[in-house]
Design a binder for these strands. Structure first.
Lengths: 199, 199, 199, 199
DNA sequence: ACCGACGGGACCGCCCGTTGTT
DNA sequence: AACAACGGGCGGTCCCGTCGGT
C-alpha cells in the first residue's frame, strides 16, 4: 500500500529532471528506466503511458518551482520587496534550479509548440500561476499605496517574466552568469520605478 | 550545374520551417520528404545526413532572420531609431516570422540543451551576431554623442534580446499579442532612456 | 474451505465467455482480471498459469454445452425425436448459447489449428462426445427397429454436426438467422429419412 | 519498378499461408519476416501496417480459392455436374488447399468474431461470392429445366457450404479423411435430389 | 486468500542510412 | 540526380508470471 505511493513519488522525483533536460519527446523510456531504477513493466504499473508519466512529472516540477516562488513572496514584507525576492528566486533557476534543466515552463512551452497539446495546456496553467503571483502582488502594492496607481499589473507580470525567461535562456546558451545578472539589475530598477514618489 | 544549386536552395527553403516547427529531433525524414517533394535518396544526394541538412537549414533560417534585422538597422538614421526599428523587427517574429515556427535561435537554444552540440554551437554564433548588432549600434550611438556615455552596450543587448525572446515565448504560449505589445512599449522606453539629456 | 471452491467456480463462470469470445490467445490476463473481479495474484492462487485456467474454463464450457445436449436427448422418447431435439439444442447456440461466443468446440478447433496441442486434444475429446451422443442414439434406434438397419451411425453424426457447425458459422458471420433455420429444416428431413418405411 | 511488384507478390504468396495457419493475431511480424525473407523495414515499405498486409494476403488467398471454385464450375456442363464439381473442389481443401491452413473464410470468420471488423467484412464478401456461385448455378439449372422449380437456390447454397465447412473442420480436428468423405457423399445425394424426375 | 509491485521479454511501428537501379 | 527497396535497430506498449506483503 505505502510502497506504491513511495515508488510513485520516487519515480516523479527521478524522471522530472530527465524530462526537463531532454524534453518530453527526447526522453526515452530507456532514459527513465535508467533514472528510476525500475524496468519498463514496473513503470507501467504506476503510469499508463509515457504521456501520463510526463504530465505527472510536469506537475511535480511545477510544484517545486512554484513553492520557491511562493516562499519568496511570503518571506518579504512590502510589495517592492516581494517582487525583488521573486525576481531573485526566478533567476536562481540558472545556477540552482529545484529540478535540473532550468525553467520547466519555458522548456515545455517551446517544445510543445505544435505537438502535445495536453502538455501545452499544463504549461499555460503553470505560467498563468506565475503571472498571477506577480500581478496580485502588484495589485496589493497599489491598494496599500506603496505602488503607483497608474501601474498595470499585467504589464509588470509580462515584463518580469519575459526578462527572466529570456535572460535565463541566454545564460544557459552561453554558460555565462552575466545575462541573468544584468536581468536582475534591470528587474530591480523596474520594480523600484513602480513605487510612489514620496516628495 | 545550376540545377543542383537550385535544388539545394529549394530543400533548405522547404525544410527550414519543418525543423523550426518540429525541432531537430522531432522532424523526421518522412516529414522532410513530404515537405521537399523529394525522396530520401534525393535528399541524401545533397546532404550526407539528417544532421548536415539540419545545420544547413539552420544557417539558411538564421540568414533570413538576420537579413531582416540588418535591414531594420540599415533603414534607420540615428542609433535610437535603429534600435527601435530592430525591436520592431524582432517582435514581428510573433505574427510574421521569415521562417515558420518563431525565433529559430530561441527554439534551438532550448531544444539543444544537452544533445546536439553542433547545433548548439551554431545557435551561439547566431545569437552572438544579434547581440553584437545591438551592441555595435549602441557603441556607435555613444561615439556620436547621441547616447549616454555610461551605457553598457552589452547590457542593453542582453536586455533587449531577453525581453524580446521572453515575450515572444509568452505570446506564442497563449496565442495572445498582448505580451509582445507590452514588450515593445518597454523596449522603446528603455531605448529612449539611453539618450543624452539635452537640457 | 468452501470459499475456495466457490471462488474457483466463479472464476470459471466468468472467464469461460471471455475465452470463448476472444480466443485463448486473444484473451489477456487483463481481460480475465476485469471479468472476474480478482487481481492477478488472486487468479494465480487458483490456477498455475493462463493455460491451466483456459483448460479448466474450456472444460466448464463443454460441460454447459453438453448438459443441454444430454437434456435434449433425455427429454425425448424415440430416436427420431431425440435427434430432432438434439438438432434444435445445437442450433440454439446461435441465439442463446450457454456460454457467450458460440460453439466452443468449433472456436477452439479453428483457433488451436497448430498452436496449443493441449487445448486441441480437449476439443477432440469434447467433439467425440457429441459425435458419440448422436451415434449411440442412432444405434439405439436401429436396435429398436425404429431406424433403418443400413444407416451408418457415424455418418449421421458427421453430417448433423457438420451442418450444425457450418450453419452456425454462417449465421454468426452474417448476423442472420436464415442459415441456422435452413440447417434445421434440412437436419429434420435427414433425420426423418432414417426411419424404416412401414408400408 | 518491376522489383517492387515482384516483391509484393512474393510477400503475399509467402505470408498468406502464415496468416491462414496462425490467424491474424497469432501471426507475428517475426513469423512474416521469417516466411518472406525480408526484414521488418522491408515489409513496411510495401505495406503500411500488419493489418494492411493481412488484408492483402486475405484477398490473395480468396483469389486462389475462388479460382479453383470457378474453374470447377466452368469445367462442367450441366448444373448438376457443376455443383458436384464445386463440392469436390471445396472438399479438396482438406488434403490439398491452394493456401496452407484450410478454408480461409472459415478461419477468418471464426477468428474475427469480435475483433478486426475490416477482416470480418472481407470474409463476408468472400463468403457471399461462394454462396452466390452456388446460387446462380442452381438458378441456371432451374431456368434450363434441369432442376426442380421448387428448389430455393439460397437454401442449397447454405446447405452445401455449411456441410463443407463443418466437415472440413471435423476432418482437420481429427486428421481423418472420413468426415469430408461422408460430406461429399451427402452433398452429391443432395445435389442429385434437386433434379427434375423425368418419368 | 488476495492484492499490488515488479521483471523481463515480445509485440508492432517507425526511425535513419545504404544500396542498387533507372 | 532521383527513386524505391531494404536492413538493422530503437521507440512505446502490453504481455505473462513471480514475489513480498496484508
Amino acid at each position: 500500500m505505502n510502497k506504491g505511493i513511495k515508488t510513485r513519488a520516487a519515480i516523479l522525483e527521478r524522471s522530472a529532471p530527465i524530462f526537463n533536460t531532454l524534453g518530453y519527446a527526447g526522453a526515452s523510456l530507456q532514459d527513465l528506466v535508467r533514472a528510476t531504477g525500475l524496468q519498463k513493466g514496473g513503470l507501467y504499473n504506476h503510469y499508463d503511458s509515457k504521456e501520463t508519466l510526463a504530465l505527472a512529472a510536469f506537475d511535480y516540477a511545477v510544484e517545486q518551482f512554484g513553492a520557491r516562488y511562493q516562499a519568496a513572496v511570503d518571506g518579504a514584507d512590502t510589495a517592492t520587496n516581494k517582487l525583488l525576492a521573486l525576481s531573485k528566486a526566478m533567476l536562481r533557476n540558472y545556477e540552482d534550479p529545484p529540478v535540473a534543466g532550468g525553467c520547466i515552463v519555458l522548456n515545455t512551452a517551446i517544445e510543445s509548440d505544435d505537438s502535445n497539446p495536453a502538455l501545452r495546456e499544463r504549461a499555460r496553467v503553470a505560467m498563468t500561476k506565475l503571472l498571477a503571483l506577480i500581478g496580485y502582488t502588484v495589485k496589493a502594492g497599489k491598494a496599500s499605496g506603496e505602488l503607483r496607481s497608474d501601474v498595470d499589473p499585467r504589464e509588470i507580470a509580462t515584463l518580469l517574466v519575459a526578462i527572466y525567461e529570456g535572460a535565463l535562456m541566454l545564460s544557459k546558451l552561453y554558460g555565462e552568469r552575466a545575462h541573468v545578472q544584468r536581468a536582475e539589475r534591470h528587474m530591480a530598477a523596474l520594480i523600484r520605478s513602480l513605487r510612489v514618489v514620496n516628495a
